[in-house]
Nucleic acid binder design. Sequence first.
DNA 1: TAATTTAACTTGTATTTACAAGTAAACTAT
DNA 2: ATAGTTTACTTGTAAATACAAGTTAAATTA
Lengths: 238, 238
Amino acid sequence: MVTPKSIPQYKRLYEILRKHISDGVYMEGDLLPSENELCKLYGMTRPTVRQSLSTLANEGYIKKRQGKGSIVNHFPREIGILSVSGTTSAVGDRKLKTKIIAKPVLMQWPADFMFTLTDLEKESGCIYMERVRFLDDVPIFYDISYIANINLPRITARQFENRSLFQILRDYYRIEIKGGDQRIKAIPATAKISRYLHLKREQPVLHLERKMETNNPDLFLYSSIFCNTEKYSIFGRF
Amino acid sequence: MVTPKSIPQYKRLYEILRKHISDGVYMEGDLLPSENELCKLYGMTRPTVRQSLSTLANEGYIKKRQGKGSIVNHFPREIGILSVSGTTSAVGDRKLKTKIIAKPVLMQWPADFMFTLTDLEKESGCIYMERVRFLDDVPIFYDISYIANINLPRITARQFENRSLFQILRDYYRIEIKGGDQRIKAIPATAKISRYLHLKREQPVLHLERKMETNNPDLFLYSSIFCNTEKYSIFGRF
DNA sequence: TAATTTAACTTGTATTTACAAGTAAACTAT
DNA sequence: ATAGTTTACTTGTAAATACAAGTTAAATTA
């Protein structure tokens, strides 16, 4: 049988379980239904179910134990694709705000760009924007984003306030982030950074340089992120 | 047929390909042999080969493209389980040195430990040590490690100079790191940190707090790592 | 010659089947 | 009562098979 919307079965189950974990249907430490139970519940075979579970395990949502089952992990809140763990209890969705510092404009790539670019990217020019993101009305991230201008009509005209860049790329252009790599440094705040993040000059900030891969093999997203880590930490699994 | 050393076939192929990539047999951008070719070469079926490849892909060694093949990624050098990308050309193995600041001792866990501990861990006490790691004779990492004293006889007597902690755990106790999570912050260097990393006081350093999971479900490794990121960056995939 | 189609690759998804190995609770013999 | 064994679960590994879908280059056609 063919699935109606041509979305793979293993991905369907993955999304369902992922949502259940985020929503708290399964709590930290709980056991997921066994693989055979999931087979019966969703009418799949075990290899298919296992594919869903191994994706969840790779992303850190669950931990598998032979002879026991799939155990749900705690998982911190995500902002964009950055995970943040606060010293305060929980980070609620509604406490999150985004402010545009520099509206998206089409321009040439900087001469000394942080990653090496393909010829196609160089020719296309880049869409540039700057944003600050707030948690509990405290500025936490100062993001500078660069996107190659490849198949993104009218993007500079979109409304970016209070909507994630990733959300716009997904909704209007069917672009999804598949992965990427990043470099992390600790640097002293420059005048600009300290102004946007409400910090004293020379105070340590986290600097992330990331290159993100998408489902379009020619299109990459780049960002340079400056992060105030006084109250919150960047959280990651490896 | 049963493999002689009871190591799974997919893991065998994974190790072979991983080594070939690290050794430069396959260079960045190269295509790996196709799945069907690997089947014939190593006498496995495609699901088994695919399991090896998907592990490699998850760890960032390769990138898979439907219709094309498995493309080898660049991959930075690893120190312990930290990846480092230098501003200078390449980081050679022989330029790496470790110095013990505080020899491993058995003691009580600190009162305000950075992660929550199980009862078993609390009862067992912890093995504590401090090390500084050098790259090109420049101190880069100041590591403080904590290990629960669970099934690790005579560990405080081992020679840790110029040998990785992970290597000793693997060779003598069959303990392997399976994954873990970490928190990352930028902090100003304290007197102690600046002394060990040859930095001025208050200069930004990267602070990593990590909890590592092992093949023994009761045993975790903890470390607090302070990192000089002036010349090198911490590198990661996501 | 140039554009199009086809064919021969590649990886992606999915089923079915079988047995190995780890875990935990129920059971049994001491 | 307790120590050891069995049993009924769980996930782990592996094979054989089939077709879908993306990519590329050769073959065909205009």
